[in-house]
């Protein structure tokens, strides 16, 4: 029976992934801001087959509580086989360009809070000498685009951090998976018009579970984003700088 810690558990992708782990009869521990929603998930996941589900409140931007909250989770689970970090928010790019506070907040939510949590988690996972750390970043972090570069930079920061962390934890049997979803139809993107490239949270959840099981390093979700991003990254800067997307 696997033990799984999910941070940002009320996000649509986290919910879909938790359901798949529940079907595998895992023991789950959920962290998120809205505890009423977490309580609702607990009942749901137990009916779906989870061995046990517990939860606690966590506002990821309160860095000071991170250590205590992770300690509590570890106490509850006994041992962490998999930790999945899912929280994030899509900032308003135009606002971030004129208002530094908005940009700083975007970095706090999408990057610094993740790095703070990873600092604590890395230490614990290193001590237990096995496990898996999976973090949701984004294909937006592969190259800065003028329409979305604040979000992209924050996610890209986490991706680079994960590369280093992977090396640090390799001797301790801990795998670090960077999950890079493309467009996903979630509450975070509910205001955007959807096209053919959009995936459902359930599709992403399957990619996540597969990537963790197979001990991948970077998972593009769905897979075809790997090729799309290879093309995006190969466009010469002299042309790329003129592209509005």
């Amino acid at each position: 029976m696997k033990t799984v810690l999910i941070i940002g558990a009320n996000s649509a992708i986290a919910k879909a992934t938790a359901r798949l782990y529940a079907e595998e009869q895992c023991q789950l521990y959920l962290l998120g801001r809205d505890t009423a929603a977490l309580a609702e998930q607990k009942a749901d996941l137990e009916i779906r087959g989870a061995t046990s589900v517990d939860f606690a409140p966590l506002d990821a931007t309160h860095f000071a509580v991170h250590e205590a909250v992770i300690d509590q989770a570890l106490d509850n689970l006994g041992h962490i086989d998999i930790v999945l970090i899912c929280h994030g928010s899509l900032p308003d790019q135009a606002l971030c360009e004129t208002d530094f506070d908005a940009a700083a907040e975007a970095f706090k939510v999408n990057a610094l809070s993740v790095i703070s949590l990873l600092g604590v988690l890395a230490q614990k996972m290193q001590e237990q000498n096995n496990g898996c750390i999976a973090v949701l970043t984004s294909v937006a972090g592969d190259r800065g685009r003028q329409s979305n570069y604040v979000y992209g930079a924050a996610k890209g920061m986490v991706s680079l951090y994960l590369q280093g962390l992977r090396g640090r934890l390799f001797p301790f049997n801990v795998n670090v998976v960077d999950i890079k979803p493309g467009f996903v139809d979630t509450p975070m993107t509910s205001h955007i018009k959807k096209g053919a490239l959009w995936a459902s949270p359930e599709q992403i959840a399957h990619c996540i579970i597969k990537g963790i099981d197979k001990k991948k390093y970077t998972v593009y979700a769905p897979y075809f984003w790997r090729y799309i991003m290879q093309i995006v990254c190969s466009i010469p800067e002299s042309i790329f700088k003129r592209l509005k997307f």
Binding site: A12, E40, A43, D44, I47, R48, P187
Partner: peptide
């Protein structure tokens, strides 16, 4: 559609 929880069985 997105409100899709089991509550009790």
């Amino acid at each position: 559609e997105a409100v899709d929880h089991f509550y009790a069985f």
